[in-house]
């Protein structure tokens, strides 16, 4: 417990950034029908389960241009 308290200043911002990215990506995935590849279920899983990298992958590679 003490160790967790020590790293709280790291965990809170880390979680916050993770949440913001995941939420932004999830909204985008659900609002759009077409992706450059893959389908909706795949991108929802990637965005929610792969922390930080998932949303980045979605916005740089998965998001279609329309």
């Amino acid at each position: 417990m003490e160790q967790i308290m020590e790293y709280l200043p790291f965990l809170i911002p880390l979680l916050a950034v993770e949440m913001i990215l995941a939420a932004a990506a999830l909204v985008h995935v659900l609002k759009h029908k077409n992706y450059r590849f893959g389908n909706r279920a795949m991108w929802v899983a990637i965005v929610l389960l792969v922390e930080i990298i998932g949303p980045i992958l979605y916005f740089t590679m998965g998001r279609s241009d329309d």
């Binding site: 880390l14 990215l21 985008h28």
Partner: peptide
Amino acid sequence: RTYRALLLPAVFFLFGMMSPL
């Protein structure tokens, strides 16, 4: 709209935070 303005600062913030850790 392309989320560049969100991604770039977020990723760089993480770099800045994780490096000292």
